[in-house]
C-alpha cells in the first residue's frame, strides 16, 4: 500500500435543467420581485461612471440542429477596461465584472451590455488579448460549458489561449464580429459545423 492522498473530489455536476431561471433569474422566469435585489442583472454598479467603452454583444446559442435555444442561461466574467479584475486593487469601482443573461423567448437572442475589457499580463509575462469569459448552462448540458469572447477589432495574434488551438479556423468561433459602433455579434454553436471552442481550464 502506498500512502493515502487526503484529498476530496469535486462534487459531480448535474444539468441546470429547464427551470434554472427560477433560481438564478427570477424576473425572467415570471417571478419578478422574488428578491429585493437580483444578482448579476448588469455588470455595472453605475454605468454612467464606468471607465472604458461600453459595448453590446448580441448572439444566440444554437443546438446541433441549428435551433436557437430559448432556455440557456449564460454568465459572463471579465476584467475592467484597465485590465484589472473587480475585487483586485485598482479595479473600476463602478463595475462588477459579472453578468447573467438569457435569450429572449421570442427572438432567441441574448444581449450582453458591458465594458470592453482591457488586456492583462499572465504567465511568463505574456499579454492576453481582451476577452470575456462565458459559462453556459441549460437543460441537456450536463456540466457548464466555458468559452470566451474575443473581439475582431483587437490584436488577437499573441493571445496564449487562442494560440493553443491547433486548427486555426476554429479560432474564429471565439471572435465577436463588429456590426456597428460598439456593437458586436457572438453566436455560440454547441455542436456541428462551426462548433464553438469550449475550454477545460
Amino acid at each position: 500500500m502506498v500512502q493515502k492522498l487526503e484529498t476530496l473530489i469535486e462534487s459531480a455536476s448535474q444539468t441546470a435543467g429547464p427551470y434554472v431561471h427560477i433560481g438564478l433569474m427570477p424576473t425572467y422566469a415570471g417571478n419578478a420581485g422574488y428578491y429585493d435585489e437580483e444578482i448579476g442583472t448588469t455588470p455595472f454598479l453605475d454605468e454612467s461612471k464606468a471607465k472604458g467603452e461600453i459595448v453590446e454583444i448580441v448572439g444566440s446559442v444554437f443546438d446541433g440542429t441549428g435551433w436557437a435555444m430559448r432556455d440557456a442561461l449564460i454568465e459572463s466574467w471579465q476584467c475592467d477596461a484597465g485590465g484589472v479584475f473587480p475585487g483586485d486593487k485598482g479595479a473600476d469601482p463602478a463595475f462588477t465584472g459579472h453578468c447573467r443573461f438569457a435569450a429572449d423567448a421570442e427572438s432567441g437572442e441574448f444581449t450582453l451590455r458591458t465594458v470592453k475589457p482591457g488586456s492583462y499580463k499572465g504567465r511568463g509575462g505574456v499579454e492576453s488579448a481582451p476577452h470575456i469569459s462565458l459559462w453556459v448552462v441549460a437543460r441537456g448540458i450536463n456540466i457548464g460549458l466555458n468559452t470566451r469572447i474575443y473581439f475582431e477589432d483587437e490584436d488577437n495574434a499573441n493571445d496564449p489561449l487562442l494560440n493553443r488551438i491547433e486548427q486555426r479556423p476554429r479560432v474564429n468561433t471565439l471572435i465577436a464580429k463588429k456590426t456597428g459602433d460598439g456593437k458586436y455579434r457572438f453566436d455560440i454553436r454547441l455542436q456541428g459545423e462551426g462548433e464553438t471552442v469550449f475550454l477545460d481550464i
Binding site: 444539468t15 444578482i39 448579476g40 443546438d63 446541433g64 440542429t65 435551433w67 435555444m69 466574467w77 471579465q78 476584467c79 479584475f85 473587480p86 475585487g87 483586485d88 462588477t96 465584472g97 459579472h98 492583462y120 499572465g122 504567465r123 492576453s128 476577452h131 469569459s133 441549460a138 437543460r139 441537456g140 448540458i141 450536463n142 460549458l145 470566451r148 496564449p160 489561449l161 493553443r164 488551438i165 476554429r170 454547441l190 455542436q191 456541428g192 462548433e195 464553438t196 471552442v197 469550449f198 475550454l199 477545460d200 481550464i201
Partner: peptide, 28 residues
C-alpha cells in the same frame, strides 16, 4: 438523457493552465 444529444459539443475541450480570468471571480 435525450436533451444532451443535440446539446453536447462533439469536439474535445481545449485545456490550458488557469489564468487570472478563471482564478478570480465575483464577490457577493
Amino acid at each position: 438523457y435525450k436533451s444532451t444529444v443535440a446539446r453536447s459539443p462533439s469536439r474535445a475541450l481545449i485545456s490550458g493552465p488557469a489564468t487570472a480570468t478563471e482564478q478570480t471571480g465575483p464577490v457577493f
